[in-house]
Amino acid sequence: MNELLLVVTIAGERVALPAALVESVVELDTLIPVPRAAPHVAGLSALRSRVMTVIDCMRSLELGSSACSDGIREAAVVELDGHHYALIVDLVEDVVEAASEPAPVRAAMGSGWERASQGMVETEAGPLLLIDPAALIAGAEAKAA
């Protein structure tokens, strides 16, 4: 049994998240901003009486910012160290099976992608970049610290 991957689109690019880490896919409506937090923290949202920290993946990958003001956003919910995070993505597409182990990407990528990726996996939907949710949550500043 190969690892299952959740195929999502971030900044127009199709990437894969390990499906085992994703608890659910939700649609966010209200977003409460967190003043003075790191820029990739889009705010807080509530899901079934739980507070989630919402992460703007585009900001985290230094690819501009998602437009959060236009209402409903799709997001993948992951749990890390007891906290729940909602990762804002453009679109959630499908769940596919990984056909290979992640392999290093030898071509030059953007620095954000470089930091967050765990390599490239082959799937029936073509080669996809495997993204580490923890790196998305840590954001751009984690590297500098």
Binding site: V34, R36, A37, V51, T53, H83
Partner: peptide
């Protein structure tokens, strides 16, 4: 409840 580290890092909450 405790907030996520990214929120706590602001030192405000």
């Amino acid at each position: 409840k405790p907030a996520a580290p990214a929120v706590m890092n602001t030192g405000l909450y």
